[in-house]
Amino acid sequence: MDFYPIAIEKLIEEFAKLPGIGYKTAQRLTLHVLNLPREEVDEFAEALVKARGTIKYCSVCGNYTDTDPCGICSNPSRDKSTICIIEQPKDIISLEKVREYNGVYHVLHGVISPMSGKGPDDIKLKELVRRINEDVKEIIVATNPNVEGEATAMYISRILKPLGVKVTRIAHGVPVGGDLEYADEVTLSKALEGRVEL
């Protein structure tokens, strides 16, 4: 039973392909776009096409950029002796918002996940190893605290330790403002494991 013309159904389908967007949200977005003035729709479409056409990956770290190398890699005030390994470019935004880290990054573009058919050769590990030189003092592994993220962190540690570089892992545990009664066993275990002296 088709409620909409084919063009509207197609647009709903396309919006629904976006992460976190279900059919109802895609439908709302489609109907909103249809009610926009033609100039705004043209600007939106042009922004999509321009972003897709001009944004590329930094040849050094793998972050999104419109210049190569990216602004972080080319910034002389960044500490190049520390590399923070993350899963996706969007993770850089989260870490940069904290304003505590002044090193550089390396984006893996995924994690090791045998269930999904992704092995070490499917993520940017060779590129990471090529970046290790005598100037690099520490590698911070900031993959997500799930099975795949932990497996990837352990694999990275195993391949980098023989190179003489310090490999650390971001801490995991109970979030600020969280209640212990709502924390799962793994989170509490990690919180106890990573405890610090007061």
Rank of each mutant, 00 (worst) to 15 (best):
M1R: 12
D2A: 14
F3S: 15
I6A: 13
I6F: 11
A7Q: 13
K10R: 12
K10T: 14
K10V: 07
K10L: 10
E13Q: 15
E13T: 10
E14M: 10
K17N: 11
P19I: 04
P19W: 10
G20D: 06
G20S: 09
I21S: 08
I21H: 13
Y23L: 12
K24I: 03
A26C: 05
R28F: 11
L31V: 06
V33D: 14
V33R: 11
L34D: 09
N35P: 02
N35L: 10
R38S: 13
F44W: 12
A45Q: 13
A45H: 08
E46S: 15
K50H: 15
A51T: 14
I55M: 14
S59F: 08
V60F: 06
V60A: 07
C61D: 03
C61H: 01
G62E: 01
G62S: 04
T67W: 00
C73R: 07
C73F: 02
S77E: 15
S77T: 14
S77M: 10
R78K: 13
T82C: 09
I83L: 14
C84T: 03
E87P: 00
Q88G: 02
P89S: 09
P89I: 04
D91W: 05
I93V: 15
S94I: 12
L95F: 14
L95R: 07
V98L: 15
V98N: 05
N102C: 02
N102G: 13
G103I: 10
G103M: 09
G103S: 09
V104Q: 05
H106M: 02
L108K: 05
L108W: 00
H109R: 06
G110N: 05
G110P: 07
G110K: 03
V111E: 04
V111P: 00
S113Y: 06
P114R: 09
M115S: 11
M115T: 12
M115K: 15
S116M: 14
G117H: 10
K118C: 11
K118H: 12
D122G: 03
D122H: 06
E127S: 06
E127V: 03
L128M: 08
R130W: 08
R130Y: 08
E134P: 05
E134H: 07
V136Q: 00
K137H: 03
I139E: 06
I139Q: 03
I139Y: 07
A142E: 02
T143P: 02
P145L: 04
V147K: 12
V147G: 04
V147S: 11
V147H: 06
G149T: 09
A151D: 00
A151F: 04
T152Y: 03
T152A: 00
A153V: 02
A153W: 01
M154Y: 10
M154N: 09
M154V: 13
M154S: 08
S157M: 11
R158D: 12
R158L: 01
L160V: 02
V165G: 00
V165K: 01
T168S: 13
T168Q: 05
R169Q: 09
R169Y: 06
I170G: 07
A171L: 00
P175V: 02
P175D: 05
V176G: 08
G177W: 03
G178H: 02
D179G: 08
L180P: 01
L180G: 00
E181K: 08
Y182F: 15
T187F: 02
T187S: 06
L188M: 12
S189N: 09
K190V: 04
E193Q: 15
G194A: 15
R195P: 08
E197V: 10
E197R: 13
L198E: 11
